[in-house]
Every structure is written in structure tokens, then in C-alpha cells.
Amino acid sequence: MASLRDIQNKIVGVKKTKQITKAMNMVASAKLRGAQNRIERFRPYADKFHDILIDLASRADASVHPLLEKREVIQNIGIILVTSDKGLCGSFNANLCAAANRLAKQKEAEGKTVKFICIGKKGRDFIRKTKFEIVSQYAEHMTNFDFQLASETGNYVIDGYLSGQFDEVHIVFGKFVSIARQEATASQILPAETAEAEAPAGASSEYIFEPSVEGLLAELLPRYVKVQMYRGLLDTSASEHAARMSAMDNATKNCDEMVGSLTLVYNKARQTSITTQLMDIVGGAEALKG
């Protein structure tokens, strides 16, 4: 049985851990607010961009631009895995890695070659342990990123796509549904999917285009890829903070519970030692009388 001092030390330790988890919870919630604001501010841009692109794509044939055209033979698959750099956020990164792994396995079963582009340290570390190849990685960026990162990675996959390194590119990211819910989501970013969404007819049919529909598409498509990348990054970052918040909240609650049960053990141990001491005294007194 642990001594009284041991138990007391343990209680102090758990209380200190609780302070840390509580502080991390508050930091995460502040960061989450920031990330949510950024999503809010990005939305008008992304929505407008999407509308215009869909409208343009519906006017042009899919073969006018290589980023739109579906390739007949799809051999090389690129998967962009967006995760956080830091842990302590519950099963968040594990879920993302599992989703990416599942997608990769499925593509591999179809006889395709899968290559990974990892943004964030956790995903990179995970993929390293699998047999899949990492062609590019961006670690230590997720804590503080701007559109530049989306641009950089966007350019990388576009170059890779055009040069034939990839025939299809998917992104796996943590979609931010709500504070309590984040979903590991996979979506295709290249070739750009625009066909299924029909443009609103009539309203904007009399546009003048400058330079031309094709010229505009050539300008817009690479940017559209970056917009989607940025969205994935923003969502993942918000999800990460939300996941950390709830993980830390749970940890704080567990600390409370542990302090409770440890205190119980401590009190019992104290009681036992008092009883033993009393027995000794009583025993000694009896002996003296005798």
C-alpha cells in the first residue's frame, strides 16, 4: 500500500496536470474563434469564385483546359493529407490518417499507384510508417499559415498534374461541421469537378468575357485549386482546435475524477494509520497495567 506522502504527491501532480489541460482548453477555444472568423471571412470569396467558375465551365467544353479534362487512363493518384502539427487533440489526427489510408488502400486495390503530399507533421509521421511514398511535405506550417501555403501546395499539385506525375488528386482534410463534430472528408480537386453542378440558366447569359471564356478559365482554374486547398487548410485548422478543446475538456474532467478518488484513498489510508496508532497506544497502556 502506498504511503500517505505518496498519495499526497500524486494528488498534487494530478492537480497540476489539470491546470495545464484547463489552460490548453482555453487557448484552443480562443484559437478556434480565430479560425472560425477566418472561415467566415473566406466564405464570400470562395462562394463567388465557385459560382463564376461553374458558370464559365458550363459554357466551355471540358477539353478546353487540361485541369478540367478527365484522363482516360488513371494510373497515378495523388493524395493530399492535411493534418495538424501538434497532438493532444483526441482522435482527430488518427481519424484523418485512417481516412487517407483507407482511400489509398482502395485505390491501390484498383491497381493504381498512390503518392502522398503531407501537410502537417502528424499525417507525415503516419504515412512514413506505411508503404506509401511521400512526394512532398509541408510540416510546421499549420500553426500559422496564410493563402501563401495554399498557393505553394496548389502550384505543386498543378505542376505535378500537368507533368503527368498525378492523373488524379484528392485531398483529405478535417471538415469543420460544428464544435462537437469534425469529419475526415476526402474530395477530388483535380481534375476539377464542375460537370455535375448546373449553372443557373439565363441570369448571367449575356456576359462579355475578356479575354475569352477559355482564357478566363485558364486564369481561374489554377486559382480554383488553390481556393479549395485553402478551404481544406482552414477547415482542418478550425477542426483541430475544436477537437483539442473537447479533448482537453475531457482531460480536465478526468483530472477532477482522479483527484476525487485519490482523496478517498488518502483519507482511507489516513484513517487506517490512525487506527493502527491507536491500537498501539491502547495495547501499550494495557500492557503497563498488567
Binding site: 463564376i52 449575356e206 456576359y207 462579355i208 468575357f209 475578356e210 479575354p211 482564357g215 486564369e219
Partner: peptide, 19 residues
């Protein structure tokens, strides 16, 4: 600053999309 040179827009311009 349009990609093919500068353009000006007054109210009631016809729909127009330019890089």
C-alpha cells in the same frame, strides 16, 4: 487594370467578366 488593358465601369454597365 484588365489583363488586356485598363477598362472603366460606369453604373448600368452591361454584364462583363474580366481577368
Amino acid at each position: 487594370p484588365g489583363i488586356n488593358g485598363e477598362f472603366g465601369v460606369l453604373p448600368n454597365h452591361i454584364p462583363f467578366l474580366s481577368a
